Computed example of a mutant assay.
Amino acid sequence: MQHAYRRHIAYTGSVLALGSLLMLAGCNKATEPQPADENELITTVTLRFTEQGTTNTQAFTFQDKDGDGGAAPTRFDSVTLTANKSYSLTVEVLDESKTPTDNITNEIKDKQDEHLFVYTATPGTLLAYTYGDKDSRNFPIGLAGTATTGSAGTGLLNVRLRHQPPINGVAVKNGTVTPGSDDVNLNFPLTVR
Protein backbone atom coordinates (compact mmCIF):
# COMPACT_ATOMS: atom_id res chain seq x y z
CA MET A 1 0.00 0.00 0.00
CA GLN A 2 2.83 2.35 0.83
CA HIS A 3 4.51 1.61 -2.55
CA ALA A 4 1.32 2.55 -4.44
CA TYR A 5 1.12 5.81 -2.48
CA ARG A 6 4.76 6.69 -3.32
CA ARG A 7 4.13 5.97 -7.00
CA HIS A 8 1.06 8.25 -6.88
CA ILE A 9 3.12 11.06 -5.28
CA ALA A 10 5.94 10.59 -7.84
CA TYR A 11 3.41 10.55 -10.71
CA THR A 12 1.65 13.66 -9.42
CA GLY A 13 5.01 15.43 -8.99
CA SER A 14 6.01 14.55 -12.55
CA VAL A 15 2.71 15.84 -13.95
CA LEU A 16 3.07 19.10 -11.99
CA ALA A 17 6.66 19.55 -13.16
CA LEU A 18 5.66 18.91 -16.79
CA GLY A 19 2.73 21.32 -16.47
CA SER A 20 5.02 24.01 -15.07
CA LEU A 21 7.47 23.57 -17.94
CA LEU A 22 4.67 23.84 -20.49
CA MET A 23 3.38 27.02 -18.82
CA LEU A 24 6.85 28.56 -18.86
CA ALA A 25 7.29 27.66 -22.52
CA GLY A 26 3.90 29.21 -23.28
CA CYS A 27 4.81 32.38 -21.38
CA ASN A 28 8.08 32.74 -23.31
CA LYS A 29 6.25 32.51 -26.65
CA ALA A 30 3.94 35.36 -25.66
CA THR A 31 6.89 37.71 -25.17
CA GLU A 32 8.65 36.82 -28.42
CA PRO A 33 7.93 39.14 -31.36
CA GLN A 34 5.55 37.70 -33.93
CA PRO A 35 7.27 36.94 -37.21
CA ALA A 36 6.84 39.71 -39.76
CA ASP A 37 5.22 39.19 -43.14
CA GLU A 38 7.60 37.68 -45.64
CA ASN A 39 9.17 39.89 -48.28
CA GLU A 40 7.58 39.83 -51.71
CA LEU A 41 9.28 38.03 -54.61
CA ILE A 42 9.68 40.76 -57.20
CA THR A 43 11.17 39.84 -60.55
CA THR A 44 10.30 42.93 -62.60
CA VAL A 45 10.31 46.66 -61.81
CA THR A 46 9.18 49.20 -64.43
CA LEU A 47 9.58 52.95 -63.93
CA ARG A 48 7.35 55.15 -66.13
CA PHE A 49 8.37 58.79 -66.55
CA THR A 50 5.84 61.09 -68.26
CA GLU A 51 7.12 64.57 -69.00
CA GLN A 52 4.66 66.99 -67.41
CA GLY A 53 2.51 68.88 -69.91
CA THR A 54 2.96 66.10 -72.51
CA THR A 55 1.85 62.55 -73.17
CA ASN A 56 5.47 61.50 -73.79
CA THR A 57 6.09 58.49 -71.54
CA GLN A 58 9.34 56.58 -71.25
CA ALA A 59 9.50 53.20 -69.51
CA PHE A 60 12.65 51.70 -67.98
CA THR A 61 12.67 48.12 -66.71
CA PHE A 62 14.66 45.78 -64.50
CA GLN A 63 13.83 42.10 -65.03
CA ASP A 64 15.21 38.99 -63.33
CA LYS A 65 12.59 36.27 -63.81
CA ASP A 66 14.15 33.80 -61.39
CA GLY A 67 14.64 36.37 -58.59
CA ASP A 68 17.82 36.81 -56.54
CA GLY A 69 20.58 34.32 -57.26
CA GLY A 70 20.42 31.90 -60.14
CA ALA A 71 20.59 33.45 -63.61
CA ALA A 72 21.67 37.05 -64.15
CA PRO A 73 18.99 39.69 -64.83
CA THR A 74 17.72 39.51 -68.41
CA ARG A 75 17.06 43.25 -68.59
CA PHE A 76 18.39 46.29 -66.74
CA ASP A 77 17.61 49.50 -68.62
CA SER A 78 19.51 52.75 -68.23
CA VAL A 79 17.27 55.70 -67.34
CA THR A 80 17.75 58.64 -69.72
CA LEU A 81 15.91 61.91 -69.04
CA THR A 82 16.03 65.53 -70.21
CA ALA A 83 17.70 68.14 -68.00
CA ASN A 84 15.61 70.67 -66.05
CA LYS A 85 12.26 68.92 -66.59
CA SER A 86 9.52 67.59 -64.32
CA TYR A 87 8.15 64.10 -64.85
CA SER A 88 5.25 62.19 -63.34
CA LEU A 89 6.81 58.96 -62.10
CA THR A 90 4.88 55.75 -61.51
CA VAL A 91 6.25 52.30 -60.72
CA GLU A 92 4.94 48.82 -61.46
CA VAL A 93 6.29 45.68 -59.76
CA LEU A 94 5.59 42.12 -60.86
CA ASP A 95 6.36 38.55 -59.87
CA GLU A 96 6.81 36.85 -63.23
CA SER A 97 8.01 33.59 -61.68
CA LYS A 98 4.32 32.63 -61.41
CA THR A 99 1.77 31.78 -64.08
CA PRO A 100 -0.19 33.94 -64.46
CA THR A 101 2.07 36.86 -63.53
CA ASP A 102 1.36 38.28 -60.07
CA ASN A 103 1.00 42.08 -60.08
CA ILE A 104 2.64 43.00 -56.76
CA THR A 105 1.70 46.67 -57.35
CA ASN A 106 -1.86 45.76 -56.34
CA GLU A 107 -0.63 44.12 -53.13
CA ILE A 108 1.39 47.23 -52.28
CA LYS A 109 -1.75 49.36 -52.79
CA ASP A 110 -3.70 46.99 -50.52
CA LYS A 111 -0.94 47.02 -47.88
CA GLN A 112 0.20 50.60 -48.36
CA ASP A 113 0.70 51.06 -44.59
CA GLU A 114 3.51 48.47 -44.83
CA HIS A 115 5.43 49.69 -47.91
CA LEU A 116 7.63 52.64 -48.87
CA PHE A 117 9.44 53.31 -52.16
CA VAL A 118 12.60 55.42 -51.83
CA TYR A 119 14.18 57.10 -54.88
CA THR A 120 17.72 58.44 -54.47
CA ALA A 121 19.88 59.90 -57.24
CA THR A 122 23.67 59.96 -56.98
CA PRO A 123 24.81 62.65 -57.37
CA GLY A 124 21.75 64.29 -55.85
CA THR A 125 21.84 67.17 -58.35
CA LEU A 126 20.67 64.85 -61.15
CA LEU A 127 17.16 64.20 -59.86
CA ALA A 128 14.89 65.02 -56.93
CA TYR A 129 11.77 63.01 -56.08
CA THR A 130 8.56 64.29 -54.47
CA TYR A 131 5.95 61.80 -53.20
CA GLY A 132 2.50 62.07 -54.73
CA ASP A 133 0.67 59.49 -52.60
CA LYS A 134 0.07 58.83 -48.89
CA ASP A 135 -1.08 55.85 -46.85
CA SER A 136 -3.89 55.81 -44.28
CA ARG A 137 -1.54 57.25 -41.63
CA ASN A 138 -0.40 60.08 -43.95
CA PHE A 139 3.03 58.55 -44.64
CA PRO A 140 4.40 58.43 -48.22
CA ILE A 141 4.11 55.33 -50.40
CA GLY A 142 5.96 56.16 -53.64
CA LEU A 143 3.85 54.36 -56.23
CA ALA A 144 3.29 57.80 -57.81
CA GLY A 145 5.16 61.07 -57.54
CA THR A 146 7.17 63.71 -59.35
CA ALA A 147 10.78 63.44 -60.51
CA THR A 148 12.50 66.74 -61.29
CA THR A 149 15.79 66.62 -63.15
CA GLY A 150 18.66 69.04 -62.64
CA SER A 151 21.56 69.80 -64.93
CA ALA A 152 23.09 67.29 -67.30
CA GLY A 153 25.24 64.51 -65.94
CA THR A 154 25.48 60.77 -65.26
CA GLY A 155 25.13 58.70 -62.14
CA LEU A 156 22.71 56.24 -60.53
CA LEU A 157 19.05 56.18 -59.54
CA ASN A 158 18.61 53.90 -56.53
CA VAL A 159 15.10 52.48 -56.22
CA ARG A 160 14.27 50.74 -52.95
CA LEU A 161 11.02 49.20 -51.83
CA ARG A 162 11.00 48.92 -48.05
CA HIS A 163 8.73 46.28 -46.51
CA GLN A 164 7.64 47.65 -43.12
CA PRO A 165 5.00 45.32 -41.64
CA PRO A 166 3.71 45.75 -38.08
CA ILE A 167 5.53 43.99 -35.25
CA ASN A 168 3.26 42.39 -32.63
CA GLY A 169 0.35 44.31 -34.13
CA VAL A 170 2.09 47.68 -33.77
CA ALA A 171 2.72 49.72 -36.93
CA VAL A 172 6.41 50.50 -37.54
CA LYS A 173 6.22 52.48 -40.80
CA ASN A 174 7.13 56.06 -39.91
CA GLY A 175 7.91 57.69 -43.26
CA THR A 176 11.62 56.88 -43.13
CA VAL A 177 13.72 54.15 -44.73
CA THR A 178 14.86 52.75 -41.36
CA PRO A 179 12.17 50.22 -40.32
CA GLY A 180 11.75 46.93 -42.17
CA SER A 181 13.74 45.28 -44.93
CA ASP A 182 14.23 45.61 -48.69
CA ASP A 183 11.86 43.95 -51.14
CA VAL A 184 13.81 45.70 -53.92
CA ASN A 185 17.12 47.58 -53.99
CA LEU A 186 18.19 48.50 -57.53
CA ASN A 187 20.71 50.95 -58.99
CA PHE A 188 19.52 52.08 -62.41
CA PRO A 189 22.23 53.82 -64.48
CA LEU A 190 20.97 57.42 -64.86
CA THR A 191 21.77 59.92 -67.61
CA VAL A 192 20.36 63.45 -67.62
CA ARG A 193 21.09 65.32 -70.83
Rank of each mutant, 00 (worst) to 15 (best):
H3G: 04
A4G: 08
Y5A: 14
Y5L: 15
R7I: 15
R7W: 14
H8I: 14
H8K: 15
I9Q: 14
I9H: 08
A10N: 15
Y11E: 08
Y11H: 12
Y11S: 11
G13E: 14
V15P: 00
V15A: 12
A17E: 14
A17F: 15
A17W: 10
L18D: 12
S20H: 02
S20I: 15
L21K: 11
L22Q: 10
L24P: 00
L24Y: 14
A25N: 13
A25P: 01
A30R: 10
E32N: 05
E32F: 07
E32Q: 11
E32I: 08
P33F: 11
A36I: 13
A36N: 02
D37Y: 07
E38F: 09
E38M: 03
E38L: 04
E38R: 11
N39M: 09
N39G: 15
E40M: 11
I42F: 07
I42V: 13
I42A: 00
I42D: 00
T44Q: 06
T44K: 13
T46F: 08
L47I: 03
L47G: 06
R48G: 01
R48V: 06
T50P: 00
E51K: 09
E51Y: 05
E51R: 14
E51T: 11
Q52L: 12
G53I: 06
G53W: 08
T55M: 09
N56D: 15
Q58E: 13
A59T: 15
T61I: 10
F62G: 01
Q63I: 02
Q63P: 00
Q63R: 12
Q63E: 11
K65D: 05
K65G: 04
G70S: 09
G70T: 07
A71N: 05
A72P: 05
A72S: 12
P73W: 03
T74G: 05
R75C: 00
F76I: 05
D77Q: 07
T80H: 08
L81A: 00
L81W: 02
T82V: 07
A83K: 13
A83T: 09
A83C: 02
K85G: 01
Y87H: 00
T90I: 03
T90D: 13
T90G: 07
T90R: 00
T90P: 01
V91L: 09
V91N: 06
E92V: 13
V93A: 10
V93L: 15
L94Y: 13
D95T: 07
D95Y: 05
D95L: 06
E96C: 04
E96W: 02
E96D: 12
S97Y: 07
S97I: 02
T99R: 09
T99K: 12
P100H: 03
P100D: 01
T101E: 02
D102K: 13
I104Q: 04
T105C: 03
E107H: 09
I108V: 13
I108C: 04
I108P: 01
D110L: 09
Q112V: 05
Q112D: 09
V118S: 03
V118P: 01
Y119R: 02
Y119F: 15
A121V: 02
T122V: 15
T122F: 10
P123K: 07
G124A: 15
T125V: 09
Y129I: 03
Y129V: 01
